[in-house]
Design a protein around this nucleic acid. Structure first.
Length: 571
DNA sequence: TCCTCTTGCGCC
DNA sequence: AAAGGGCGCAAGAGGA
């Protein structure tokens, strides 16, 4: 068992303090003050891997990264763990900063968490240069003392989980969430290889040359705008304004309910196709055009800012730069460095496999024991119609009831009663105001913390209440699957990161490293000669994640893995 | 002018 | 009759 070490950086300067701990969090010696925290951490880690205990990975690890010779193996992120524990203890959403946890422990008034940087509330005139200390410790409190005390208390709360299997899984969640924080910090530091020249060429092909006047519309976009206006009678209007677009179409005798592209696709008028094209190009320009490149992809790297645990289901969110929404067309710009390659791996049909493993439905597990789950499902229950099989299963996981899906759900209910019973029980729990949890124990928000939507039409309370209850049921129905899939993905990430760290390399600069993570997909940037070993490590990590999260299950979680020079060439 | 809400669409 | 989960981002609409 790896030893633990509490760590608190000095608020100013490169120093800090360390204190060795046992697994219960009890100090094994006095605090040690060091003038160079990075050097002291590196020396200790080189002697023996430690689990580093700190207030938050953002504030403790990110500043160390540029000064560490190699990555740290393990950590315990008090802020993330506090959030997991609070939700598990039925106190979802209580403040989770180190200061809040410390204050709860000491019976002091608990400070609210500061708003996330970048959020609307955070921009209250405060220059980020003078970003306040986010730990929220009361005046005079000693950071290292608080880290040690809060950690010991968290270890106590973890040990207090009564059911041994649930306790074991929750500890796994704690470790995986913390490992995720390490990965997120490292990806932000290393960046995703991004070829600005390729990106620029792509934009030029689609939109015309970069406008010399900032903010000006690129030529092809402007041309398209004029063409669109001419197709609708020649009167000028702003195609970015749905109000004006609806009016322009109405003047030509076409009543649209909205300007959504799926609705436009059914419109025969030539202006509809022009508008669809305009919207596609306009979106690329606005969301991932030259301004985006200037802001987020400088120096040959796109540096996404992930927010670990940013989604209640345990999925990561992102802050600025749209790290989780890179359009497929832009993948052309993601190119490995010379002599390096990208190993791109995504989990195939992750969520239905998670459902099969969670519910232990023997029939569904058999369809998830091999390659194409939907194909097997279709052969078993839908006369080979793969589209129907996929539609039905997705509908069951999302709580869809519209369209012609009823008969599909009936078939599924008949053939896979345990799986369908599992999601329907989760839905009922939600409708009744209860909470559900992921496989590893991440607990969903209580009903009161969401769906406080009072904008419902003022019809009878019963109808509005029923609608809200059903919405909540769809949320909990999906939560058990989405959050358990996130459990698996985090476990994969942690296992893969460890395996990459164990590969023999010439040195840290030659080490393969994660550069992208998107729910069920990872990209590793690796020296070309290690690409096959990395691909093998990803497959092993996926299987390790299966064992850790789901134990003994016949369900397999196959990966689609590609070793490529360019992200666009992966499938 | 600033701010919040809505719309629409990118990703899973 | 209507009835699909989770996000982030940018622009327009519209009110303060």
């Amino acid at each position: 068992m790896a030893p633990r070490t509490a760590l608190a950086p000095d608020p100013h300067g490169p120093g800090g303090r360390l204190q060795p701990l046992d697994d219960a969090g009890t100090p094994l010696g006095p605090p040690e003050k060091v003038p160079d925290l990075a050097a002291a951490v590196a020396a200790r880690e080189a002697a023996e891997h430690s689990r580093w205990v700190w207030a938050a990975t953002d504030s403790a690890y990110a500043p160390l990264l540029p000064r560490l010779p190699d990555r740290l193996a393990r950590c315990h992120d008090l802020r993330l763990v506090e959030a997991l524990l609070l939700a598990h203890e039925g106190r979802f959403g209580a403040p989770r900063s180190l200061g809040a946890a410390w204050s709860r422990l000491r019976g002091l008034p608990v400070p609210d968490d500061l708003p996330e940087p970048g959020s609307a509330e955070a921009d209250d005139g405060q220059d980020t240069l003078f970003a306040p200390d986010r730990l929220q410790l009361p005046p005079g409190a000693d950071p290292l003392t608080a880290v040690v005390a809060v950690h010991a208390e968290q270890q106590r709360r973890l040990a207090a989980i009564a059911d041994p299997a649930a306790r074991h899984r929750f500890r796994l969640l704690v470790a995986a969430e913390s490992a995720g924080a390490l990965v997120a910090a490292e990806i932000a530091y290393d960046g995703l290889p991004w070829r600005a020249d390729v990106h620029d060429q792509l934009l030029t092909e689609l939109l015309g040359p970069r406008p010399t006047v900032p903010g000006a519309q690129p030529r092809l976009l402007a041309d398209l705008s004029v063409e669109l206006q001419q197709a609708l009678g020649g009167r000028p209007f702003n195609p970015d304004s749905h109000t004006q677009v609806l009016r322009a179409f109405a003047e030509n005798g076409i009543q649209l309910g909205s300007t959504r592209s799926w609705e436009l696709k059914g419109v025969a008028h030539p202006a509809a196709a022009l508008l669809i094209r305009y919207k596609e190009l306009s979106r690329i320009h606005a969301a991932h055009g030259w301004a985006w490149q200037d802001a987020w992809a400088r120096g040959g790297r796109f540096r996404p800012e992930y927010v670990v645990g940013g989604v209640v289901s345990g999925r990561w969110a992102s802050r600025g730069g749209g790290a989780l929404q890179i359009p497929r067309i832009l993948r052309r710009a993601v190119v490995a460095d010379p002599g390096w390659l990208l190993v791109v791996a995504d989990a195939a049909q992750l969520e239905p496999r998670v459902l099969a493993a969670l519910s232990q439905d023997a029939g569904l597990a058999r369809t998830a024991a091999g390659g194409d789950l939907y194909e097997a499902l279709a052969a078993n229950a839908f006369q080979g119609d793969r589209d129907k099989a996929k539609l039905g299963l997705l509908g069951a996981m999302y709580g869809q009831t519209s369209g012609d899906i009823g008969p599909l759900l009936n078939t599924l209910r008949h053939r896979y009663p345990a799986a369908m019973g599992y999601v329907e029980a989760a839905a009922r729990t939600g409708e009744d105001g209860g909470v559900v949890a992921s496989r590893l124990g991440r607990v969903c928000p209580p009903a009161s913390a969401e769906f406080l939507d009072l904008t419902e039409a003022p019809d009878t309370a019963g109808e509005a209440g029923g609608r809200q209850a059903r919405a909540r049921g769809r949320f909990t129905r999906n939560f058990v699957i989405q959050a358990s899939a996130a459990d698996w993905a985090l476990a994969l990430l942690a296992a893969l990161r460890r395996r990459l760290g164990e590969l023999p390399t010439a040195g840290p600069a030659e080490r393969p490293h994660l550069v992208f993570f998107q729910h069920d997909e990872v990209i590793v940037h690796t020296p070309a000669n290690l690409a096959d070993e990395v691909a093998a490590a990803v497959a092993e990590a996926a299987d390790e994640a299966r064992r850790l999260v789901f134990g003994d299950t016949p369900v397999r979680f196959p990966l689609t893995t590609a070793v490529v020079d360019c992200y666009a060439d992966a499938k």
